[in-house]
Design a protein around this nucleic acid. Structure first.
Lengths: 241, 241
DNA sequence: TCCGCGAATTGATTTCGATCAAATCGGCGC
DNA sequence: GCGCCGATTTGATCGAAATCAATTCGCGGA
């Protein structure tokens, strides 16, 4: 694994952050109109191509962001290059680690994405004055903690097939939480990213995709487009129930 | 792995919770004297032997607690009995998952322990009225999230030796955060628990202990008492730097 | 002090996923 | 449509950890 660190190809388009409130959850929902106007003055909308690093591990966090569109992966890396994705964040999640000087992991776009950034100090000041905002952020961190711990079971105790099925199940339910029967979606991650999320190699991920395909649990078109005819069968392959 | 679920051997000794405030962090630090008195009326001090289940996975959470003494392990289990420890909590941590009906994992004492419990509704009411309290809980959840994600790297990408060394390093730094040179401590977990924390088998954990001992990285007395002459060597065995 | 029993260690063998290596796919520019 | 190149799949082999199987250790009770 190499340490490629692509430049940030972004065009900065300042936007009134009120737009976030209208169309996304994010942090904005908890703010008063006055606070939104204030936040808007310092916020910047950015369009990022897949593979852009938003913050590096251990770097100073200058900014926080709302994810408006796309998927961001949070990764931790060992000194020798081994890498683990420790979280996936989807719109309209909040991106950032309040009350820490340094980011505990790097954040990189997995797909093309749009984010709305604002200075760290700005948010931390708002948090101090706005219990509703802190409550909202607390709720998200509890949700992320539940997800992280769920994933620890997957990483520590599931075999390759169960890991890959668990990943597909995660994505399927995320994009289509209602679906009890079939589900259709595009994978937001490359095989390499999936491997880094599951603690496997690319080859093993590929073999398990092939296996699930041959077993009729999934169909795949063009490497990214997945059809799950029966969610419960996938769930069963994932070792859940 | 079997699903043993020991009875709760506890003697309930109602205590004024103000005691927590004096001697522990916990949640009490953020409360006003009046709130403490209120909380005290509904709080109960419990003494628990090692292996006591505090809450079961998926169970209704009737209560929250401060850990006064000892170590509590949070575990998630698969239907077939495979088990993963998803978090270790030490005094004076807060124990519980606010704003959820069901516990996302079971909590069990790893050592003899003392906890101070209070009704869930009581805490959630206090949280709504006390921004300082919510801030404190938010901080703890952020810390736990960082720890969980650190551990995901360990589970997903480290080999057996690095995992065991990482665990020893975690315990060593927890019990003695200052120590740059040597460290001496008693393991709060059995080999079986360590295996469940690291996603390994008991046998593999044992072999790695033996290896680290033969390599002179650690010394062990009576299976539980560990001496680390050189923390940096241990850290190196853990794959950190 | 000796016994009993669960916890931990050690040994032999198997297995699953990693590694090394090659072929094939698929999107994109020309 | 063709060729290129990175992404993905497939194949062969290796190796680390799991599994199966005995011992050995160590603590508590007789």
């Amino acid at each position: 694994m190499d340490m490629q660190r692509k430049d940030i190809h972004s065009s900065e388009i300042p936007v009134v952050c009120r737009a976030c409130e209208a169309r996304h959850g994010g942090v904005c929902g908890a703010l008063s109109p006055e606070q939104l106007v204030e936040l808007s003055k310092h916020s910047t909308r950015k369009r990022l191509v897949a593979g852009t690093e938003v913050v590096g591990q251990g770097e100073d966090m200058g900014a926080f962001a709302n994810i408006m569109r796309g998927v961001v992966k949070l990764t931790r890396m060992m000194p020798d290059g081994r890498q683990q994705i420790v979280g996936l964040q989807f719109a309209p999640d909040f991106l950032g680690r309040p009350f820490a000087e340094e980011s505990p992991h790097s954040a990189e776009t997995a797909t093309d994405a749009e984010i709305c950034t604002f200075p760290r100090q700005m948010l931390e000041r708002l948090v101090g004055r706005t219990p509703d905002l802190e409550h909202k952020l607390y709720q998200q961190s509890l949700k992320e903690l539940d997800e992280a711990r769920d994933w620890m079971l997957t990483l520590g105790r599931k075999n390759a097939q169960e890991k890959v099925a668990s990943f597909l199940f995660l994505i399927a339910t995320h994009y289509d939480p209602e679906t009890v029967d079939g589900s259709v979606f595009d994978l937001p991650l490359s095989r390499a990213d999936i491997a880094d999320f599951l603690g496997l190699t690319i080859e093993t991920v590929s073999r398990q995709f092939t296996r699930l395909r041959k077993d009729g649990v999934i169909q795949i078109e063009n490497n990214r487009h997945v059809i799950v005819p029966d969610i419960e069968r996938l769930q069963h392959s994932a070792g859940i129930d």
